[in-house]
Nucleic acid binder design. Structure first.
Lengths: 337, 337
DNA sequence: CTATATATGCTCTAGTTGAGCATTAATAAT
DNA sequence: ATTATTAATGCTCAACTAGAGCATATATAG
């Protein structure tokens, strides 16, 4: 698990980082570990070229070792190699004094949040680190109150007109001004913009401040882990629409409301109930188990299961392989840019 | 450009690989370089932690150096680290005797294929390496004639029933049997299946043969470059549908037929002309330049430009940021599985 | 027996998509 | 000139999809 090689100049270490996501009720969760610097971070470990035939095997090995969880669905996200965006404490556990740490991020999904018995490890609501991404109860107040004004300052502080224009266009796109509105899967775009503008704490930590550093209620994460988490959230949100990936996060059977709450937790905005069921229904992705759930608080709900063998039905003909048909949030921050 | 460090055991080298894509008429092209083993490969170079602040900067630097081209649009694809899938000749130019080469693939787009004056470097039609991916003139004959039968053998040669079932499901999904049909963006899934089944030449080269090795008219590429190219094609195909990325590959002005031919070259199947124009039209992505093209062979066509500042128009209201609305190829290989 | 909280069925309208007919405007071949 | 041939463009039509919301049914908690 450790790279025990003396490190000459220019030595490279590849860090594998896991975003293990789950949903519990209406809480989107991510498995976090307390890092040396006291911040929350993701589980990670060095890739060992000697013993790991592939990244994914290496990842599964160290996650199981560190958290005693076995991973199911796993997907590579992105490889970050930017100098200076890993925190100083990011020197990997092996103790190697690497010149350069490259982070390969992975997304893993769990069908529920098993309790963790480990010290300094916990399932955390990912919106604790991304309060501006949760529109389920309307526009997140932090947006119009703090973020948009700070971005406006950043735009206006650009040296010349072209740069200013470019910044404005990027903000418009990422935050959904004057376009089709907030696109939930642009989580990384938004985070990167906040970083560049010096609004999130990591920017100051890395010494990249150039805009208006802000007193945003802002839960930084260790190293470049919030960047990786942003990537994961965006990927997951986007993928819901074209692969039946949501069922990797559901228990064996569930009600349609369970399913809806899970989807809403991930995408971060509310859905029209009847239309949601209609969509699920003729997606052919699920079928009734025949049992009912009594724990609804109202009329009992039918329980459903993911239909892995859906080759039948008219709907299955077409929609199948795809994911869920979801509408768009048609809102934008109310504060003008 | 070279890692001049003595390599202890376990030393890692990160290779940056560029898929530089362009379209010329109805030919989808990729910039290739002749590798040491005589096969075509992609331009690549080692990532130098000393001088490159980010991967992307490193990539841009060595591509410009090697091919004298300046890259515009660039996007990271995937990081491959599987032991044994780089060819023996994959030891990077620096001459380092690395134990392990990790490949980071990038997709770069060019608005045309400028002629290359370099030795052993050429724009090549990517379907030369993926003949089964081009359905523009109907089902590629290689599919039913060779590939499907070979995959059938591979499925049947599975040791036990569960494995057999799993293989069959994967093939069904990747090649569009009994589902919504051929999904053009699954290029990588299909290539990986052919690799695992021992059907493509790289599998034999890497010593991974386990199925029926085949005499497919099959243009292998150096190292893991065909895998990277498959990733690039799939990503590009998928992205056409949700980002206006096609315009990165078009000249400043073009006719709608030019645009359609370019899209068809990429997605690999023909489109309904009138519907295509209607779609482009109310996407709000382009507008007429006012000039006409005489070189159509028929009635002169209006010339269009990509409208980068589309914040106007009713259609722009919604569709905008998105890409093109494209139909699906509703076909599957005719040979039964 | 009456709120309350969901679950579930259904309808209505506007818009989108897949196909294809018809017409217009160039060039190339009698 | 006339007549193919090749595309560019305009339009229509039916089937389907998506966004909203009304109406009912069936539990549990007073």
């Amino acid at each position: 698990m450790q790279i025990d090689v003396p490190s000459p100049a220019g030595h490279l270490v590849i860090g594998l980082n896991a975003v293990l996501a789950a949903v519990e009720g209406d809480h989107p969760l991510v498995l976090c570990a307390r890092a040396d610097d006291g911040l929350w971070g993701l589980p990670y470990g060095p890739f060992d070229p000697e013993s790991h035939r592939t990244f994914e095997l290496g990842l599964r090995a160290f996650v199981t070792e560190q958290t005693r969880m076995r991973l199911g669905y796993v997907e590579q996200l992105y490889t970050f190699g930017d100098k200076g965006r890993e925190a100083p404490s990011a020197v990997l556990r092996g103790g190697s004094t690497a010149d350069r740490v490259v982070s390969v991020g992975y997304l893993a999904l769990a069908p529920g949040a098993n309790p963790i018995e480990l010290e300094a490890t916990a399932w955390r609501n990912w919106y604790d680190h991304f309060p501006w991404e949760d529109w389920r109860k309307g526009e997140p107040s932090i947006l119009s109150a703090q973020i948009i004004p700070a971005l406006r300052d950043w735009i206006e502080s650009a040296e010349d007109a072209p740069l200013q224009r470019q910044r404005r266009d990027r903000v418009r796109l990422a935050f959904g001004f004057e376009t089709s509105g907030w696109e939930e899967e642009r989580t990384l775009d938004r985070y990167e913009l906040l970083y560049e503008a010096g609004i999130v704490a990591e920017a100051a930590r890395d010494g990249q401040i150039e805009g208006t550093p802000l007193q945003v209620a802002d839960a930084a994460m260790s190293s470049d882990h919030r960047r990786i988490l942003a990537t994961a959230i965006g990927r997951l949100r986007g993928k819901l629409r074209y692969r039946p990936i949501i069922f990797e996060m559901m228990p064996a059977s569930f009600t349609l409301l369970d399913l809806q709450r899970s989807v809403e937790a991930i995408i971060g905005f509310p859905l029209h109930k009847q239309n949601f069921r209609r969509g699920i229904d003729n997606s052919g992705l699920v079928h009734k188990t025949g049992n009912m759930s009594a724990e609804t608080g109202g009329r009992p709900a039918a329980l459903f299961t993911f239909d892995r063998s859906r080759t039948s039905g008219k709907a299955a003909q077409d929609r199948t392989i795809k994911g869920l048909t979801l509408p768009r949030l048609r809102l934008s921050p109310t504060e003008k840019l």
